[in-house]
Amino acid sequence: MSLSQFTGFRTVLASPFKNVLQLTIPSLNAGVQIRERSTKHWAPQFKKLRRLKIQKVKLPNFREENDASKLTPDQIRARMKEQGILPPRSWMEKPVLITATGAVFEPYVPPEGDGKLSTLSLGGAKQSVELLSKKSKSMMAVRKIKSFDEDFSTSTFPEIAQEVYLGAHKALAEKDYDGLHKYVTELCFPIMTHDIRFCTIRWQFLKSLEPPRIVHARCTDIVTKENVFSQVTVRFHTQQTLAVYDRFGRLIYGSEVVAKDVLEYVVFEKHLANQYGLWRIHEKIIPDWMPQREPGIKTFVQEEPEIETPAEDVTVSATPAESAVAAVA
Rank of each mutant, 00 (worst) to 15 (best):
Q240M: 04
A141K: 04
K18G: 13
G113H: 02
K116S: 09
Q239M: 12
A78D: 14
K284D: 11
L272G: 03
V142I: 14
G254P: 03
R50S: 13
R37V: 09
Q240Y: 00
V223M: 06
A321C: 03
K270G: 02
V258A: 11
Y165K: 04
V244N: 01
Q231T: 01
Y165D: 08
A14W: 05
I191L: 10
A327G: 03
Q45D: 13
I281E: 14
H169M: 10
A30K: 14
V228D: 00
A217K: 00
R202F: 05
I285L: 13
V328R: 13
P60L: 13
P305L: 04
P291V: 01
V164P: 00
V262I: 14
S128E: 15
V234H: 01
M140C: 11
K126R: 10
R51A: 15
R202Y: 06
G124Q: 05
A243W: 00
V244K: 05
R247Q: 14
D313M: 08
R10P: 04
A103Q: 13
F9S: 11
Y183N: 09
T156S: 09
A273C: 07
Y177L: 09
S4M: 12
K18I: 10
V142Q: 07
Q75T: 09
Q204L: 03
S128G: 06
E210K: 08
